[in-house]
């Protein structure tokens, strides 16, 4: 099953700011290069871009959850 991994350790956010809608929601189709969330590392924010394409997106990491580098953020069917 293809998966989207966190490139960095830090805190995962699913939207650009608390008052913005999430970049992607479960069930979405994802293209290579699509932004699916942000990782906050030491107070700086980095976009997480998908390196795989697919359908049936399913997030396995919650918003504001701490992650290690390489952790699976979401899976595609």
């Amino acid at each position: 099953m293809p998966a989207i991994h966190s490139p960095l350790p830090g805190t995962f956010y699913r939207s650009a700011s608390p008052d913005k809608p999430p970049y992607k929601t479960d069930g979405d189709t994802v293209a290579v290069g699509d932004v699916i969330g942000l990782i906050e590392v030491m107070k700086s924010f980095h976009e997480v871009k998908s390196e795989v394409a697919g359908t049936g997106l399913k997030f396995v990491t919650d918003n504001e959850e701490p992650v290690m580098a390489g952790a699976i953020l979401a899976e595609l069917s």
Binding site: L8, P9, G10, T11, E40, M42, K43, P66
Partner: peptide, 11 residues
Amino acid sequence: PGYTVPPFYDS
């Protein structure tokens, strides 16, 4: 030595 700097706070 051996300390892991966490990513959650300032640098």
